[in-house]
Design a protein around this nucleic acid. Structure first.
Lengths: 136, 136
DNA sequence: GTAAGCTCTGTAGCCGCTACAGACTCAAGA
DNA sequence: TCTTGAGTCTGTAGCGGCTACAGAGCTTAC
């Protein structure tokens, strides 16, 4: 029985909803710090790790890449972070998201368009296939 | 010197704009048929492979997965394809694309929102980071 | 003869996980 | 006390969709 304060990996997973293995993965790629271990070598997470992991998960949900998250975290970890820097990174990411939306909207329009060119009848020659073969 | 009609891999790549290695990859995963070989074992592509590869590339550009493309191709390959089937698959894919757009738009709104909550001033406590830590 | 440019094969790497094998430790119940 | 089940550890492989590279062989031009 160890008397370190903290929780084990499965508990951290349960508290955050994060997959058990993903926690280990985040540690490996440096998004979570190497936690202290108890006498058996088990990871013992200090309570503030919950917030840190939730931060990572939120950022992932918002489509931030690992690299972007690492750079956000480095701002907080050094303690030197300023709102302005965080804002700049968030705005940069927002721009990326908007690009992705625009790209997908173009795809949506093309798909809608070729659907109108298709009779939908049971004929063997399909307009959609011909369009695709001629490059979009 | 072989007298088979057809083009070599680099020529196919040049004609279609496809990466050289990707052609081999598409062959491996069954999107392109195993081409005949000349005496040296070089792949010799019949001219209609250009259309086939362009089809695959177009579909990829439109966000179709390999699996979806395989299933579109199987319709044409069996010769039994009907416009109705192709239309159904295209519509299914369009639905997926629209879902992705919706998801990204939610992300866009969340990001815009948290940006308004940030003062942008050079203060060390940043609203964006706090929001992220509390889960989106 | 040799150098450039093509081809071949197999394999490894990218991202962001997720899962599994095989070994261990620990706690509760029969 | 013994067993069983649940937790933990490590390393590694797989997903999709490519892309790149090593090391070999072949062809062509100079």
């Amino acid at each position: 029985m160890d008397h370190q304060i903290g929780i084990l990996r499965a508990q951290l997973a349960r508290k955050t909803g994060c997959n058990l293995e993903t926690i280990r993965y985040y540690e490996k790629v440096g998004l979570l710090p190497d936690p202290p271990r108890n006498a058996n070598g088990y990871r013992v997470y200090p309570p503030d790790l919950v917030g840190r992991l939730q931060f990572v998960m939120s950022a992932r949900d918002l489509g931030f890449s690992m690299e972007e998250i690492r750079s956000l975290l480095s701002l907080t970890d050094t303690g030197a972070q300023t709102c302005a820097e965080v804002m700049a990174k968030t705005q940069a990411h927002l721009a990326v998201v908007r690009c992705r939306i625009t790209d997908l909207q173009k795809i949506e329009q093309t798909l809608s368009q070729i659907l109108t060119e298709c009779s939908g009848e049971n004929v063997p020659q399909c307009a959609i296939l011909s369009v695709l073969e001629r490059r979009v």
